[in-house]
Design a protein around this nucleic acid. Structure first.
Length: 650
RNA sequence: GCCGACGUAGCACAGCGGUAGUGCAACCGAUUCGUAAUCGGUAGGUCGCGAGUUCGAUUCUCGCCGUCGGCACCA
């Protein structure tokens, strides 16, 4: 006699078990038509499922956010059926919903190409139009294995075999076609609708393991209606326009070339942006009690052996040796990270607990031989500069230092235009240094610190560094890819390996804890994200060229030069455009170059000693006397930390 | 590293078994024109690199390098 509580609080009682379909029908014909699935006591399930006991039930319709996931999941099934219909012999594996869509991994001797998409999509539309109901069937493990083995689906057989003992094994069929699936699904393939599109093909390892066979993955996107799909596709196009590689070229910020794969050639404007961010970071670190250092680029392998990096990362280190006979046996490595070097500085002399926490910062140039497939513009490179720092502290100081760090990071991200970021907590990986007791302490300390700092995180199991757990601060690029930028890592291992000690209050020698931390991560990656975040239209303080003084007639050139000089004297980055071009043309050119302020000088301004300012790409103009324009722009162009600081006495 | 695609002038692209074009940019000239592209002219490419097939390769084949999309990796 189930009593069913609906979201409005009303309760309906039934004589016996009732299906979602029947329940919806009992409420009303509108709901019966609209319901795609239901949530029973918080768990999403098929409409055809029977409710036998008292429960709270909520129906999912196309309007609910949960519908998206159902549509995408069902669409993946439709894709798989279409592919098997068109390409016999193709084996199916898995096909989950993902952000913005779904994918399905197939095993086929010949990989798919985008040219196959029209045929596959047409077949998918047929399957949707046919509208075969999704039917769920629970089977025994033996039955499932037998079924898939008979079909020659060896990947499915492997999946079934590996399902944990006691787990219910369910099959979903849509007409003739059957897949192993946990569900839930909507009523029929017709519910998928027509707002889907196949996007790209890619290789992917079976079960994500690089030793396994490569499967052919087809990615698709799916939405509740055409309008949502179109909006998504438009968004992607816009995102492509703000790709940092494209903007980097258009704005003349940097370039990359074969002879230095994975290293950035910074051009004057790009380097100006870099220096502006670097100078800002240096001020923030100075103010936050960090001491900046600089450590060697080439370091004998012995230090990397001692730190443990040699064993784990040798394959990814650039090695150097010289031809000199005496030295020929000596192997140096370009430093892949700064921490061992910082410990060397810490280890000079005898440290006291009074010096802790000791915050040692370096804009450290590092080199790592990243796998070729990992390279991505300036966001994943082989030569990069970290805004690295190590905080040597006592264990009881971890929480307070974490709080300070998160505050600093949040403030810096905000200044640079990022309002939101995500935090991941990565705990011990399978291959690691240090014993379990040490890891227990490190993880507990970091968790406690998060609680104290009020940091909400998602767990990222097994993804910690080999020497300790870490927090990752993740920013998102223009097309929705996540990039780890900031990080905070608790390390009890390196101080041990490199024998770092300090004299504690009671006179004993102790090991400091090391907190590895970065805010930008690397300048290269962060600038890439910064470029995308602002689509190259930086706030005035960051813009490589802040003001262009453009003339309308040649007669105005001398005053334009004079105005530019006055602006430069006030600390602004200024260029002049004295070309023999119409002002219309100059406006267009500087909008395209993403210059934030255009100062126009015609005969009138030259005579009056004024500037007409226009904030590009806006249309509004404002005429100001030169001195006032200079003062105003200088004020606006100040870095946010300087703008906050009390003005020094005049 | 793995799977796939791609690599032609600074950029965006076209082309094709008979050694290459278009637009924008560049350069030269005219124009001095008040806020979203003035007009005319000129120049620019060992078609990523190397081999092979062919009478002949930018075009076909193979290898390498690089880039792009994923996967794997990311101290």
């Amino acid at each position: 006699m189930p009593a069913i509580t609906l979201p409005d609080g009303s309760v309906r009682a039934f004589e016996g078990p009732v299906t979602g379909t029947a329940l919806a029908a009992s409420i009303g014909p509108g709901l019966a038509r609209a319901a795609l699935a239901m949530e029973v006591d918080g768990a999403l399930c098929d409409l055809s499922a029977e409710i036998a006991t008292d429960a709270r039930v909520r129906f999912i319709t196309r309007k609910d956010p949960e519908a998206l996931e159902l549509i995408r999941h069902d669409c993946a099934h439709v894709l798989a059926e279409a592919v098997q219909a068109l390409y016999p012999g193709t084996q199916v594996t898995i096909g989950p919903p993902i952000e913005n869509g779904f994918y399905y991994d197939f095993h086929r001797n010949e990989p798919f190409t985008p040219e196959d998409f029209p045929a596959i999509e047409a077949k998918m539309r047929e399957i949707v139009a046919r509208g075969a109901p999704f039917a769920r069937r629970v089977v025994s493990r033996e039955e499932a294995i037998e079924l898939f083995a008979r079909k020659g689906e060896r990947f499915k057989v492997e999946l079934v075999r590996d399902l944990p003992e006691g787990e219910e094994i369910s099959l979903y069929s849509q007409g003739e076609w059957v897949d192993l699936c946990r569900g839930p699904h909507m009523r029929s393939t017709a519910d998928v609708g027509d707002a889907f599109k196949l996007m790209k093909v890619a290789g992917a390892y079976w079960r994500g393991k690089s030793g396994n066979p490569v499967l052919s993955r087809i990615y698709g996107t799916a939405w509740r209606d055409r309008k949502e799909l179109d909006a998504y596709l438009t968004m992607l196009e816009e995102a492509e326009r703000r790709d940092h590689r494209r903007i980097g070229r258009e704005m003349g910020l940097f370039h990359l070339q074969e002879e230095a794969t994975g290293s950035v050639f910074w051009h004057p404007r790009g380097w100006t942006l870099y220096r502006t961010v670097e100078a800002y970071m240096r001020r923030r670190l100075d103010a936050a009690g960090y001491q900046e250092v600089k450590t060697p680029q080439l370091v004998d392998r012995r230090l990397w052996e001692a730190s443990g990096h040699w064993e784990k990362f040798r394959h990814a280190m650039f090695l150097a040796r010289v031809e000199d006979k005496e030295e020929a046996e000596r192997v140096y490595a370009l430093k892949p990270m700064n921490c061992p070097c910082h410990v060397q500085i810490f280890n000079q002399g005898v440290r006291s607990y009074r010096e802790l926490p000791l915050r040692m910062a370096e804009f450290g140039a590092c080199h790592r031989f990243e796998p070729s497939g990992a390279l991505h513009g300036i966001m994943r490179v082989r030569a990069f500069t970290q805004d690295d720092a190590h905080i040597f502290c006592e264990e009881h100081q971890i929480a307070a230092e974490t709080v300070r760090f998160v505050e600093l990071l949040s403030s810096i991200y905000r200044d640079l235009g990022f309002e939101g970021f995500r935090v991941k907590f990565s705990d011990r990986p399978e291959i690691r240094a240090g014993d379990d007791a040490t890891w227990d302490r490190a993880e507990a300390a970091l968790k406690e610190a998060c609680a104290t700092a009020g940091v909400a995180y998602e767990l990222n199991p097994g993804e910690g560094a080999f020497y300790g757990p870490k927090l990752e601060f993740v920013l998102r690029d223009a097309i929705g890819r996540d990039w780890q930028c900031g990080t905070l890592q608790v390390d009890f291992v390196l101080p041990e390996r490199l024998d770092a000690t300090y004299v504690a209050e009671d006179g004993t020698r102790r090991r400091p804890v090391m907190l590895h931390r970065a805010i930008l991560g690397s300048f290269e990656r962060f600038l890439g994200i910064l470029i995308e975040q602002h689509a190259g239209r930086f706030p005035l303080w960051l813009a490589p060229v802040q003001v262009v003084v453009a003339t309308i007639v040649d007669d105005a050139a001398p005053f334009a030069e004079q105005a530019a000089a006055a602006l430069r004297a006030a600390g602004l980055r200024v260029e002049t455009d004295l070309r023999n071009e119409k002002i219309n043309r100059k406006v267009v050119d500087h909008i395209e170059a993403r210059v934030p302020v255009l100062a126009v000088v015609g005969r009138r301004e030259a005579e009056e000693g004024s500037l007409v300012l226009r904030r590009l790409p806006g249309r509004a103009q404002e005429a100001l006397p030169l001195a006032e324009a200079v003062g105003r722009l200088a004020e606006e162009g100040r870095a946010p930390d300087l703008a906050r600081a009390p003005v020094a006495a005049e």
